[in-house]
């Protein structure tokens, strides 16, 4: 059997150590694939070809299978997200209370539909199945923070504030991303 520890990470980026740790903890077994992809996405914000290939090699899973798994689950994203992520909850309670209007509003103001990022990389719009804030419906998770009882208009203001606050400064931490589910 090949020694799985000998396959080198794509770069000396420290985040690969986290990925490596997840695989080691699971004995480099093929069934650790989804767990490992979670760690990659948590660390890097998304899954690119290089990381998929690396994980495939390490866990001895065919690369096509890794790609198949990564694209089957909507939680994983293969594209980098914008600096700000606006996740509109489309759970039943939020739908009943008008989530669709919120999505339309983002589209009207920023020209993006769920799953898209503005060309300047400032804002990504995603939909989430249910953030569990059904009592606050309709809910929006903006950069990891839940805003409840959103009304059109109010939402635009929140978005504007968020985007203006950082301007072109530091991207928002990727730790916010696991809370949203790109579609």
């Amino acid at each position: 059997m090949r020694n799985q520890t000998n396959i080198a990470a794509p770069s000396d980026d420290k985040r690969w150590k986290l990925v490596e740790a997840t695989m080691r903890r699971n004995g480099y077994r093929p069934d650790a694939l989804i767990e490992t992809l979670h760690t990659v996405q948590e660390s890097f914000g998304y899954l690119d070809d290089e990381s998929l290939q690396y994980v495939a090699r390490k866990l001895r899973v065919a690369s096509s299978q890794v790609y198949g798994v990564a694209t089957f689950y909507h939680f994983f994203t293969l594209k980098p997200q914008g600096k700000h992520v606006c996740a509109v909850c489309t759970g039943t309670a939020c739908y009943i209370k008008g989530a669709e209007k919120l999505i339309e509003e983002v589209h009207d103001n920023y020209g993006i539909t769920p799953g898209q990022t503005t060309p300047d990389g400032e804002l990504s719009l995603v939909t989430v199945r249910c953030v569990g804030a059904c009592g606050l419906a309709p809910a929006v998770v903006l950069d990891g923070e839940t805003h409840g009882n959103m009304k059109p208009g109010q939402m635009s203001k929140e978005l504007e504030t968020a985007i203006n606050k950082t301007g072109s400064a530091e991207p928002v931490s990727h730790t916010a991303i696991p809370e949203v589910m790109p579609q």
Binding site: D49, L52, A62, S63, S64, Y67, G68, T71, F72
Partner: peptide, 27 residues
């Protein structure tokens, strides 16, 4: 295991390797 399926539901389709061209497949 060159082939697999990407996506799901009505968007599912066949891929080779990392959805890369079949002609360049090393598997």
């Amino acid at each position: 295991h060159t082939w697999d399926i990407t996506g799901r539901g009505i968007d599912a389709r066949i891929i080779s390797d990392l959805d890369t061209p079949w002609g360049s497949s090393d598997t």
